[in-house]
Design a protein around this nucleic acid. Sequence first.
RNA 1: GCCGCUGUGGUGGAAUAGGCAGACACAAGGGACUUAAAAUCCCUCGCCCUUAAAGCGUACCGGUUCAAGUCCGGUCAGCGGCACCA
Length: 813
Amino acid sequence: MDAISYSGKIDEKWQKKWADTGLYHFDINSDKPKIYLLEMFSYPSASKLHMGHWWNYSLPDSWGRMKRMQGYNVFHPMGFDAFGLPAENYAIKTGIHPKDSTEENIATMEQQLAKIGCTYDWDHEIKTCDPKYYKWTQWLFIQLYKHGLAYKKEALVNWCPKCNTVLANEQAAGGECERCHSTVEQRNMSQWFFKITDYAEELLRDHDKLDWPERTKSIQKNWIGRSTGTEVSFKVDGSDEVISVFTTRVDTLMGLSYIVLAPESPLARKLTKPEQSEAVEKYISEAMKKNEIERSSTSAEYEKTGVFTGSWAIHPLTGDKVQVWISDYVIASYGTGAVMAVPAHDERDFEFATKFGLPINRVITGGDGTEELPYCEKGVLINSGKYDGLDFAAAKKAMTADLAAMNMGSEKVTYRLRDWSVSRQRYWGCPIPVIYCDKCGVVPVPEDQLPVELPYDVEFMPTGESPLKSCESYVNTTCPCCGGKAKRETDTLDTFVCSSWYQLRYPENNRDDVPFGEDTVNKFMPVDKYVGGIEHAAMHLLYCRFIYKALRDMGYVKGDEPYPSLVHQGVIFGPDGFRMSKSRGNTVAPDEYVSKYGSDVFRTYLAFGFEYSSGGAWKDSGIEGISSFFRRFTRMVESYLETASNGGEMVVNAEADRVRHQTIKAVTNDVEIFHFNTAIARLMEFCTAIIKYQSGADRNAAFERTLVEDFVKMIGIFAPHYGEELWEKLGNEYSLFNQSWCVYDESKTVLDEFELAVQVCGKIKDKLTVSASASEDEIKEAALALEKVQAAIGGKPVKKVIVIKKRLVNIVV
RNA sequence: GCCGCUGUGGUGGAAUAGGCAGACACAAGGGACUUAAAAUCCCUCGCCCUUAAAGCGUACCGGUUCAAGUCCGGUCAGCGGCACCA
C-alpha cells in the first residue's frame, strides 16, 4: 500500500482476488439466515456506467456487506433487462443486430460493474433476452392464460407513432409516450392484456404490509384510483335498453337533468333516433379524432361539446323523463361509460347544461346561504321529496336502499386502474407463445415446446406491424392441436413482463425443468431489501406485485408480496441542478474520479456527500476530505503496527472502549436504515478520537488490536478494496468479508444508559435518571440539586431529575 | 381541486424513543510548521453583541409537555402523483 494515500491502485488486485477465490459465491445450501438484497437491474447500454449506476449499486452493496459480516447468507445477484426498444432502434439506424449489440453491451457493463467492487455472484446472472430465461417468461404468459388472467381483445390502445408500438396506460400517462414524449394516439387494435384489475383491491389493501416510502404507496394508490359510489340503472323510454351510470353523489339524484354517454359507448348508436342519426355520427367521428390531451383538458379552449340522441331516460325514483346526450366529457373506460348529470352540483354538468340549455335543479344546500351554483360540496337535501333534510351519508344510504329494492341500483366500487396491455409490435422482445389456427382458434404453445425462439434474420424497419410478421419461417407453423397449418402471434411482450418475475429466477437461474424451484423460492423469497428508482412506482413495482399475487393464487409461491421493504435511491443531478444529459452538457463521469481517487474514495464520497433517497446536484467539493480521511486512517494503522512491533503497550482504556461500542452500534444502525452519510461521519469522529489518544499523554494505550480491527471492518463496508488491504496489512487471514463483525450484543447497552434509583432524602422515592456519560460527580451534583430544590419548594415530592452531561437539565415536581 | 412528501447555518447535511439544535464535512477566515510549496496540525465559523453574559433562533401561527426540529391543529412555500374519473 502506498504509504501516504489510497489511490485506487489496489482496486484491481482485490477485484481479481475476489473473482479468483469466488469470495462472493453464493451458497444456496447455507444454514445461515438469508438476506436477499436486490437492486433493479439495468438496461445494457453502450455508454460507460454513469453516476446513477454507481449511486444505485455501490451503497446497497455496502448494506449487503454489513449484513454479510453480521453473519447472514447474503444473496446479491445482478442481471440485465436486455430486451427493449433502444437496441432495436439502434439496429434500424446502424444495421447492427439487437442481439449482437446487446450482448456486447452486457459484456462491457459486466466489466464496468466489476470496478465498483460489488458483492455480486455472477454465476446467478440473468439476461432477459436469453432463451433460457424467456422460455419461462413465456411459461408465465401461458399460466396466466390458463387461469384467465391473460386475454386478447379488440380495444382502443395507446399508440406511439414514433416508437411504432402500443404502450401500456402506465407508459402513456398524461397522453405522452414515457420513452420519447411523443403525443400518444388512440388506435383500435387486437391486443393481449393481463387482468391486473382482478387484483386492484388487494394491491391497494396490501400496502399496509409494505415498508415502502409513503409517496410510493400514494402513487400506486392514485393510479389504482378506488372510489366508492352507487350504480344506478335508467330505463329508456320506448326501448329495452338500460343505461347504467356510476356516481359517487347519488344524494343528488333528485336533481337529475340529463344522462350522458361516452361517444365510444355501444349504447350511443343504439339509442340514437333516426332523426338524430346524422348529427350523432358526425359527432362521434369527430370525437374519436381528438387525442387524449384535447379530450381531457380542463382549459377553456376546449369547450364542452355534445349531441342529443333523441332518446329519453326514465328517472327510477320519480318516473320523470330526461334527455340522453352523447359527449366526450364522459370517459368510456371509466365506470360504466355513462353518467347522470346534475348541473346544480357538478361543475362539468353545469357548464354543459348552461351551454345546451338543459335544466338546472338545486337539491343540496350547504345551510350557509350560498346561492351560487354549481354547489359541489356535500350538504343537506332539499327539493328531494321524502329525502329532504337528510345529509350526504344518510341520503346515500336511503336512496341506494330504495334503488336496490327496485332492482335499479346498488353500491359499487370503481377503479381507475385498467388491464395491463402487453402486446408490442416490435421485434426485440419476448415472443408471445400463442398460435392461431383456423380450426382450433387461439392455441397456447404447449409448455414442452417452449421456448418459442426469436428468429435472428428479420427485417427491422418499422412499418406499424411487428417485424416478425414478415418472417415467414417464424409465422407459419403447425397447430399443436390439429396439426394443420397455423400462424404464430407476431407481437412480442412488453419488457415489463420480463422483469415482473425476475427476482424468482435468480436463485436457480440455470434450471431447465422449472422456472424456479419451489423449495428454493420459499427459502429465499421475499426480497429483503429492494432498491430502485421511484419512476417505477406505477409500473414495474405494480406489475411485480400483481404477478407475484397471481403466482401465489396458482400455488407457485407463498407470501403476498415480493418486495416488503423498498428503498428508492435519489437522483444525482448535474452540477447545475438539472438532470444530467449529454444535450445539456452537464454530465459528470464517475470514471475521472475513480481513476484519480480510486473506487473506494469515490464510493465513500457518494455515501457521505448526499442523502441516499434524495440525491441532489453533483458537487465534488468534499471528495478531498474523504481522501484525506483515508490518509489519516492509513497513518494511524501504520503507527499502530509500528508500535506493536516495538512491543508497545496494548491496554485499552475504558473511554475508548465505550466510544468503540457506541460507534459500532450507531454505524450498524445507520447503515441498516441507509443513513450512510451519518455512518461515515461517525467513522470520522472515531478516527479523530483515536488519533487524539495517540497524540495525547497515554499514547498507544487505546491501540488495542480490536479497536483498529473494528475500524477496518467498518471502513471496509464502504471501501472494500481499502478494507481488504488494511486487513492484510494487519497480518490477518483473507478475507475481511469473511469476518464476523458488529453482531451487537444488546446486553452491552447498559453501557449507554442506566437508571439509578437514588434516595436523596427520605421523602423522595422516585427515580433519578442519569445519562450514561454522567460521572460520579454529576450524579452527586444532581442529588445536591435535588436537595436544594427540595428545600426551596418546602418538601414537595420531586418526580424526576434530568441530568445531561454536566448540566442539570430539569427537575420535575 | 384531491392525495402524498419536504421545509434546519454560506453549502451538503446531522440530531435512534420528545431530552445540550447545527454532529460530520465543504467553503470562508486566522494561526503553527516550512527558505518556499505540498502535506499535516490547531483555532474561529446560526443571529444579536467590541467582548462576555443574557437573549433570540429548525418556513409561519397556535396547542400539548418540566422539555418540541421531532407530537397535535391551522397557514404558507416547494416537489411529486391523480384529475372533465362522474
